[in-house]
Design a protein around this nucleic acid. Structure first.
Lengths: 207, 207
DNA sequence: CGTCAATGGTAACGCCTATTACCGGAGGCC
DNA sequence: GGCCTCCGGTAATAGGCGTTACCATTGACG
């Protein structure tokens, strides 16, 4: 049956992507060799070249598929009661979880260095991930503004401030490998603190 | 005279560091070849190996020296009147300028991917840069807390929130090559907005 | 002006990498 | 069951890399 062959092939594809992602994320794009990937995945190089064409193709597949898996929930999930505090908290927790996940940390690391080599890839990564998140949050804030709960002149900038506040030095430290991702407890505290400041800051009259 | 030889040598050293930094920042560590550096700097490979020992030595020299030049002003400068708004604004502006400078963007890009290869280098980079900045700001906040101007339980976390807010998506976009560094005007606005939110957020009673 | 030490340039070495040519074997199809 | 197509593994190719051996040159010093 063709189907059997297809599923077997999909399994292979998955295994390859998995192994390749691990090596790419550990070593970076340039320092990763096809041999190293095969060593981890089993099989042979021919397998990779049949499935992805070349190294660039494999890398692109990883980034787009991982980004899809990780980031789409962030967008789709309709976090939207009318309680702004709850909404922000949920938003913060979800984005923190996503940003701190090993996979996204890995992608982030490579995206940063390979921005010159894969500009399109990086652009779509940003737009589907952090960019869309910010836009979505800006909409939420806009709605709150129209309800008179907050004062703001540029909701997109405000959204940026908020996500920046939740990311802050934690993300930097994790990305630099200086500390492990935060525990649930730490994440909860960081988000709560950020939400509190943000809400207070935005609620009162601003110039 | 030995002095003449020394200064000529220092000039060479500077030129090499400059050229090497450009290539490293554009291409990343692994993808940068010694030949490419020489092509840009003139001279010959022997020059590099005499001066820096090997590729790692050259790279380490770049990171430590650039970081020193760029980050030490951030710490030394004693921004400290008793006007918290002015202090925060100055702090925000300085750190924004530093973080958005092409050199620091370049270092940041590489530090992120080469964290596994050069853990010590990355650690000292963080501690001399973002880490120390946060600690310094935390001290300022602590002082304000003791004067009763703000309420806080963890000033270091608060400091992290503030710098995160000023960096926010701008830094991410610049690092990913999706937009140029902000103009003075944009930087001013972003910092002013962050300061406003932060001050309001922190001033009122927090749980 | 001759000697000597050190430095800069060229070319080689050995290794590693992405990519492909080739071949053996394992199914699908009649 | 026999043929045929496709796929996976091995080994070869061609190029690039960091590093070093070797030689020419230069500038200081007596």
């Amino acid at each position: 049956m063709a189907a059997a062959r297809t599923t077997r092939r999909n399994g292979r594809r998955e295994a390859l992507l998995q192994a390749a992602a691990e090596v790419f994320f550990e070593q970076g794009y340039a320092a990763t060799s096809i041999d190293a990937i095969i060593e981890r995945a089993g099989g042979s190089k021919r397998n990779i070249y049949n499935e992805f064409g070349n190294k660039e193709g494999l890398f692109s597949a990883i980034v787009t598929e991982s980004a899809d898996n990780l980031l789409s929930p962030l967008v789709i999930e309709e976090i939207e009661g009318h309680d702004l505090r709850a909404t922000l908290t949920a938003f913060g927790r979800h984005s923190m979880d996503a940003y701190m996940s090993p996979t996204l940390i890995g992608i982030y690391r490579i995206a940063v260095t390979e921005a010159n080599r894969f500009p399109d890839l990086v652009k779509s990564f940003y737009e589907q991930g952090p960019g869309r998140t910010a836009v979505r949050l800006a909409e939420v804030l806009e709605a709150a503004r129209e309800r008179g709960e907050i004062q703001a002149d540029d909701c997109l900038r405000l959204a940026g401030h908020f996500v920046g506040m939740t990311r802050d030095n934690l993300h930097l430290q994790v990305v630099l490998g200086l500390r492990p991702p935060p525990s649930d407890e730490e994440a909860r505290e960081a988000v709560a603190s950020a939400v509190e400041i943000f809400l207070n800051g935005v609620r009162r009259s601003r110039k």
